[in-house]
Amino acid sequence: MDKTIALLSKYLDGDFRVSPMSPERIQKIDIDSVEKDLGVRFPEEYVFHLLAKDAEILPERGLFIEVKEEIWERPKLYDVGEAWSFLYGIHTYTACQESEDWMTLSITGKEFIEETGIKAVPILKLIGDANCYCTDENGNIVKYNHEENIIEPTNMNFWEILELELKELKERKEKKKN
């Protein structure tokens, strides 16, 4: 069962912009194809997220969630600040080939594997963070640590990670507003 809309409703308010990133819907066969091509397995709850069919917000297209710029001014080149102050949004990746390359699982997954040598595919990323959440070949959600070029277990499912990151994004937004 998909919990995307419930989680978005719980943590997001009018200070956020939520955008689907592709005009096309995907099917389970698209997800299966990416899994096969990249040699990974996506967790069941992430597949539910990708296949959600909400009329207004379509996660299968990839979600891009950000605090509106009038609330949180975007960092500029050479800006200095605490690490959290650059993390103004999150996005998920999609199996939809019509999405932007930087959100498409087949493209980002292939690049990730080639660049890191790690058999994992990014599924959720904080904007402004070099680390990301991935799924490995066994369907486990792991967190990529770019400084050490390793993946670490999260011991959480996709809904727990999405909820954690939405909650923390909301907290950062409130901190930024004050």
Rank of each mutant, 00 (worst) to 15 (best):
residue 162 L to M: 11
residue 100 E to H: 14
residue 147 E to A: 14
residue 78 Y to Q: 02
residue 56 E to N: 15
residue 70 E to M: 12
residue 80 V to T: 13
residue 91 H to R: 15
residue 111 E to W: 09
residue 49 H to T: 08
residue 170 K to S: 08
residue 117 G to C: 00
residue 129 D to A: 09
residue 10 K to H: 05
residue 31 I to F: 01
residue 145 N to P: 05
residue 103 M to D: 12
residue 176 K to T: 09
residue 38 L to A: 04
residue 14 G to V: 05
residue 143 K to V: 14
residue 165 E to Y: 10
residue 62 G to F: 10
residue 142 V to Y: 02
residue 107 I to V: 12
residue 159 W to Q: 02
residue 127 I to M: 05
residue 68 K to Q: 06
residue 27 Q to N: 14
residue 40 V to W: 00
residue 88 Y to S: 13
residue 74 R to N: 13
residue 169 L to D: 11
residue 24 E to T: 15
residue 121 V to M: 04
residue 61 R to K: 09
residue 57 I to L: 11
residue 122 P to V: 01
residue 136 D to S: 06
residue 96 C to R: 07
residue 51 L to C: 03
residue 114 E to Q: 14
residue 144 Y to K: 08
residue 119 K to D: 10
residue 162 L to I: 02
residue 101 D to Q: 12
residue 13 D to S: 03
residue 8 L to C: 04
residue 55 A to Q: 08
residue 66 E to D: 04
residue 147 E to H: 15
residue 152 E to Q: 07
residue 130 A to R: 15
residue 123 I to F: 00
residue 108 T to F: 10
residue 6 A to W: 09
residue 60 E to L: 12
residue 86 F to D: 05
residue 55 A to F: 11
residue 33 S to N: 15
residue 7 L to E: 10
residue 12 L to Y: 06
residue 93 Y to A: 13
residue 128 G to R: 13
residue 53 K to I: 06
residue 33 S to C: 06
residue 152 E to C: 07
residue 40 V to Q: 00
residue 172 R to Q: 00
residue 57 I to W: 04
residue 104 T to D: 03
residue 16 F to I: 07
residue 154 T to S: 05
residue 130 A to L: 11
residue 82 E to T: 10
residue 84 W to V: 06
residue 9 S to F: 03
residue 175 K to Y: 11
residue 80 V to N: 15
residue 18 V to A: 05
residue 112 F to T: 03
residue 140 N to I: 10
